[in-house]
Computed example of a mutant assay.
Amino acid sequence: MADYLLLALGTFVLIQLFYYFFFFTRLAFYENNTNYDCSTPGVTVLVCAWNERENLEELLPLLDAQEYNNFEVILLDDRSDDGSEEFIRAHINDWKHIRYIRINDQFEHVTPKKYALTVGMKQAKYPIALMTDADCRPFSNHWITAMTSRLSDERDIVLGFSPYLKQSGFLNWFIRCETFYTAVQYLSFTLAGMTYMGVGRNILYKRSVFFANKGFYTHRHVFGGDDDIFLNEVSTSSNTAISVESESFVYSTPKTTWKTWFKQKQRHLSVSKHYKPRNKVLLGLLSGAHVAVWTIGIFVLIFGIWQKDMPLLAVLGGTFTVRWLIQWFLLSRINNKLDKTVEGFSFLLMDFALFMYYIIFGFLAMIKRKPRTTWN
């Protein structure tokens, strides 16, 4: 029995190592050469908001202060009733680049955020659209410049990174870990020519891409997916670039309770069923191998202790040690590029925490309970 357990463990470890070496090394050794050029075509920054007055008071001055030659910011206020409209109208003349569009309508055939973004795309003055959310904050005044610097004649889409702010507590630590590991995946896959998602908090693409693919039409009724489902449809092996320099980062405030984070993750994960089959297989195999390695490893540990099989325990320890060393080396390099989002000493704990995360949300996915969403 021990031989079969080790064979199974070795198989799933090799699957993980394939992802580490074929995908993750691309990001670990990626050089984001800076080539700022403020003569890049004009950019329209789109911000959708629903009852976000406090966030808008902080965000809009930061966006207006961006150092870029030719840009505008369109705030798409979707039926807010928290005083957002009054605040904007009272201060609109204080900002040079801010445009305000109030959306009063809601339609059954399209989700509110996708409708708002579509309105923004149609009203935009410039050919490049850069998206973020009201609760986000650009790291620097060169955010627009850093993102547009990755565009080219062949690259129509640029994926940025949006880490969560560091706060105290286990929930915040895990949110940062999960966000980091998700970024490792979608940025690495993009470098391998297999883009499957981006994050709406920091994503840029040419408006021509949006209209050429009929916008969000095929998934207009799905809550979420204005970033990942859309990218899953329109990205190719050669039209998407990434930006991993710090000035292109956009920070976001994380959820502070397990309940609100849990609802957010349910919504995010619920859209993955709309991915292309290839993407679902690759991502499922990656998370499945992660779960299998830990599950078999725990079983081998218990079996080895019960049988007092020291050679078996030695092989188990050696296998996990080699795996962790490779993981630590690659993830540490990537972590340094992504503003040290995760404390380096906690990678081992993160590895186990992600195992539990996959178990819990995998079980919930089988239940197929539809997440409740009030706005997206």
Rank of each mutant, 00 (worst) to 15 (best):
C177Q: 06
E178K: 13
S162L: 02
Y164G: 06
P163D: 00
L165W: 07
V158L: 03
R176Y: 01
T145Q: 13
S152P: 14
T145H: 15
Q167I: 12
I157S: 01
L159F: 07
W173P: 14
K166E: 07
V158A: 00
W173T: 09
Q167D: 11
R155N: 10
E178N: 05
L159Q: 07
E178S: 15
I175M: 15
E154R: 05
W173C: 15
F170N: 03
T148H: 10
D156C: 12
L159W: 06
R176N: 04
G160R: 02
P163V: 00
F174M: 13
K166A: 14
I175P: 14
A146M: 02
T145Y: 14
S152N: 03
S168I: 07
K166T: 08
R155C: 08
C177V: 14
F170I: 09
G169Y: 04
A146L: 00
G160D: 00
R150Q: 03
R150C: 12
L165A: 12
D156S: 11
V158E: 08
F161H: 05
S168F: 05
S152I: 11
E154Y: 07
F174I: 04
I157T: 04
T145R: 14
F174A: 10
I175K: 11
K166M: 12
W173V: 10
F174T: 03
I175D: 03
L159C: 06
I157E: 05
L171V: 00
D156H: 15
A146R: 10
E154T: 09
Y164P: 06
Y164R: 10
G160I: 02
T148Q: 05
P163M: 00
E154F: 08
I157A: 04
T148V: 07
L151C: 02
L159K: 10
F161T: 04
G169V: 01
L165E: 01
G160C: 02
R176M: 10
F161D: 03
P163L: 07
T148W: 11
M147H: 04
T145D: 13
E178H: 13
D156K: 09
E154H: 12
G169C: 07
I175E: 13
M147S: 06
N172G: 15
T148C: 07
V158Y: 06
G160E: 00
G169E: 00
I175R: 09
R150M: 05
S152M: 09
Y164E: 02
L171C: 02
G169I: 02
L165V: 09
L165N: 07
Q167A: 14
D153V: 15
K166S: 13
M147N: 08
S162F: 06
S168D: 11
M147V: 00
S168V: 04
L159D: 08
L151E: 03
E178I: 14
N172T: 05
S162V: 00
R155L: 13
D153I: 14
L151H: 00
K166Y: 06
W173Q: 14
L165Q: 09
